[in-house]
Design a protein around this nucleic acid. Structure first.
Lengths: 226, 226
DNA sequence: TATCTGTAGATTGTAAACAGTAAGTCATTG
DNA sequence: CAATGACTTACTGTTTACAATCTACAGATA
């Protein structure tokens, strides 16, 4: 308000609450907060220089995304990830991504596959062992393309609601099992080729295999049961 | 605030915003508002005797459920249902209910099937042609049991996010095709028996058939394309 | 007559004040 | 010494007030 930004714009094309949501999500997934930590609206508000309104809006969103738990008259607590969460996120993801690929494989046309190939090219060339975060980013980018081309607003929304947690899991996997950092290209290439057949059934089989593989690895993570 | 209710309880064990959400959802699905109608926060606030805070919370929820469309600086508009919406809701529902039955069929045990049978019994005995709303209620109750026993918080949440729209579609179907009011029992009984096998694959096949049938009927509804 | 611009109106986005509730603490009593 | 009870504190839930933004309409101009 008093801080005259050189760029006074960022004309809030987006709502402030959405920006706050992104900031807090990044802080949580980036482990800037402890699991179980009590996030107080007032503290967050003055830390981010906004009022409690946008903070409340953000916390409500993050609760739907599973990043925080809201307890009445108690407030928001950073979620502790459990094996149950891993199972739920991955089974749900399998269910919707199955639908997504069956639609996307007939809608991607040349342009969609070109986008995918660009990501695959980076997966192959970038040394993800040096910057593991790149592996996470590229993995998500690949799947974002599927959801974008499946042309299904509601599926897109569900994906966005679990995308943050998927990010957390991918990061945790990379931290625990750096060996898997180089299978990214081959596995996604395989899936890309399955999609290229243009057959919904083949696409579904491809994604089943893909998600199952990812889940099997994550189950080995050392997480609390609940 | 000044209106001393005879029952002073309902002491807002739930948040006021949640109550408002339910009220508005019922008003929208019950066609108390016109599709496309502009819902103004101020009007709703004074009509329901609450402030704009809970109203905003409710509208945000309803937007996620697809009942209203939020346009920045314009406000909330009651959604107009299109063929695209029918397709999206039913394909998404198919995807998650497939997952739901595969889990529920091994977790329902005796108690779950007893609950289902109670609903089936009502489907058989109640004359839904006299009170079509009963057909809707029982149909939803049946599927609620599946989601309850699938023991998957995130799938449950997705179901809740489309449940209201499914309600709208069922009502619209009953209004347009009263002939279908008596197939409710047989179709659900068939699904129940598939679940009772306790085999996830059989359960998935059963639900695929069930959802497909429902969708085929709904496609005949006369709705705008977009 | 059509298009552009400016103004007015209304609505949302944001901030701050108020009230109610739940948890934690300390004292008191059995 | 343990258990129970009231009290205190600090948070959230809600209300109210303010400011920024957008839309729509009217008027002027080409």
């Amino acid at each position: 308000m008093m801080s005259d930004d050189v760029v006074p714009s960022l004309p809030s094309q987006r709502a402030l609450g959405d920006l706050v949501t992104d900031v807090l999500r990044e802080m949580i997934t980036g482990a800037r907060f402890q699991p179980g930590q009590h996030l107080k609206e007032t503290e967050l508000a003055e830390a981010l220089k906004v009022s409690r309104g946008p903070i409340r809006q953000a916390l409500a969103r993050l609760e739907e995304e599973g990043h925080v738990e809201l307890r009445r008259h108690r407030g928001a607590f950073v979620s502790t990830l459990t094996k149950t969460d891993v199972e739920e996120v991955h089974t749900l993801r399998g269910a919707i991504e199955r639908l997504a690929v069956s639609r996307a494989c007939t809608r991607m046309q040349g342009r969609g596959f070109a986008e995918m190939d660009a990501v695959l090219e980076q997966m192959k060339s970038v040394d993800t062992k040096i910057v593991p975060e790149d592996a996470v980013r590229l993995d998500l980018q690949f799947h974002d393309i599927i959801y974008a081309y499946c042309d299904h607003a509601r599926v897109q929304r569900v994906w966005e609601s679990i995308r943050g947690q998927v990010t957390v899991f991918l990061r945790a996997r990379n931290a625990s099992f750096p060996d898997f950092l180089d299978v990214g290209y081959s596995e996604h290439k395989e899936l890309r080729d399955a999609l290229a057949l243009g057959d919904p059934q083949a696409a579904q089989d491809g994604i089943d295999k893909h998600i199952l593989g990812a889940y099997e690895r994550l189950k080995r993570l050392n997480l609390p049961d609940r």
